[in-house]
């Protein structure tokens, strides 16, 4: 019934005009719903598997839905002294939040300068920044690792934060946004005696809410889900991040699908919560920036 009420007015107009459009409509909804099922089934399978008991997990043929759902696998992970889960969680949070804070600061400041100041070599510098966007991380990861070795930053959370403190894309994005801030606003502040940094903090930053949110969310998700770099940099257990813990746990219990799916659920959950909270900005952000 709900669906009928929610069909757009234009559609209702057309739906009244004949049977064929109605069939088409129904097909469209059927198709979209089927797509949703395909999208959701892996998540449900993950959840279902994580709720199976250790005996049910090896039953043949496998059960589709857990017959006696149990939180046994989650309990096993939480009680495993070798998996300091809250430590991994803290590490992931610390690294992601620090990177986000640094990127937002450096990108907005540099973006501001590029957008609103004239100086010699500006275009060249900006082109240079754009050029670095073309260098993929996988090409520089080997020397980057060697640099961290020389800075004694391997096996340290700083090793995850330091290389990510600036973002060429962030600067580009911020410049585009700040160019939209009227010059009169800035000139007025200058006449009122504001310092240049004061203009940045009191005039520019408050205008940047949505742009900062977008950049921040994507940077957060990117850093949170990052796998290859922490895999290379971190060795000590207590300094690992959640995605590393995931494969680490999995290869230890390769055949224990209940445990590895429970671990996957635990990693996916926080990011889903962030997603549902910030959904609007995420979708807006993509459409605005095409950022990934």
């Amino acid at each position: 019934m709900d669906t009928v009420q929610q069909i757009s007015p234009a559609l209702r107009r057309r739906a009244r005009s004949g049977l064929r459009p109605f069939v088409v409509r129904a097909l469209v909804y059927l198709l979209l719903t089927a797509g949703c099922v395909v999208t959701l089934v892996p998540f449900l399978w993950m959840l279902g598997t994580s709720l199976k008991s250790s005996t049910e997990i090896i039953r043949l043929p496998p059960t589709l839905i857990p017959e006696q759902p149990t939180l046994q696998s989650f309990r096993t992970i939480f009680e495993d002294p070798r998996v300091p889960l809250e430590r991994f969680f803290l590490n992931s949070t610390a690294v992601s939040v620090s990177v986000v804070a640094l990127v937002l600061f450096t990108s907005s400041l540099a973006g501001f300068v590029f957008a609103k100041y004239q100086f010699f070599g500006k275009d060249l510098l900006f082109t240079l920044i754009l050029a670095t966007m073309m260098i993929p991380f996988q090409v520089t990861m080997i020397p980057m690792y060697l640099i961290l070795v020389r800075l004694h930053l391997t096996d340290s959370l700083w090793g995850l934060v330091v290389p990510g403190a600036t973002s060429a894309f962030g600067i580009f994005l911020m410049k585009q946004f700040i160019e939209g801030i009227p010059a009169e606003l800035i000139d007025a502040a200058r006449i009122d005696g504001a310092s240049e940094f004061g203009i940045y903090t009191r005039i520019v930053l408050p205008q940047m809410g949505p742009a900062l949110a977008t950049l921040g969310i994507f940077q957060f998700m990117g850093t949170w889900n990052d796998y290859l770099w922490p895999l290379i940099v971190i060795t000590t257990t207590e300094r690992r991040t959640l995605p590393i813990m995931l494969t680490w746990y999995n290869s230890q219990h390769g055949a224990r699908h209940d445990l590895s799916m429970a671990a996957a659920t635990l990693v996916i959950l926080p990011i889903l919560i962030v997603y549902f909270l910030f959904q609007r900005w995420i979708v807006q952000g993509i459409t605005l920036t095409g950022f990934k």
């Binding site: 803290l90 949070t93 610390a94 939040v97 804070a101 004694h152 959370l157 700083w158 000590t236 207590e238």
Partner: peptide
């Protein structure tokens, strides 16, 4: 809250934490 947690975790990594071997996260 997240900012607080982040700061605490990174700072905690700076000093030789009790029991654990520290000293590697000093920037």
């Amino acid at each position: 809250g997240a900012g607080g947690v982040a700061a605490a975790t990174l700072l905690n990594g700076c000093k030789p934490a009790g029991g654990a071997q520290g000293g590697s996260t000093e920037a």
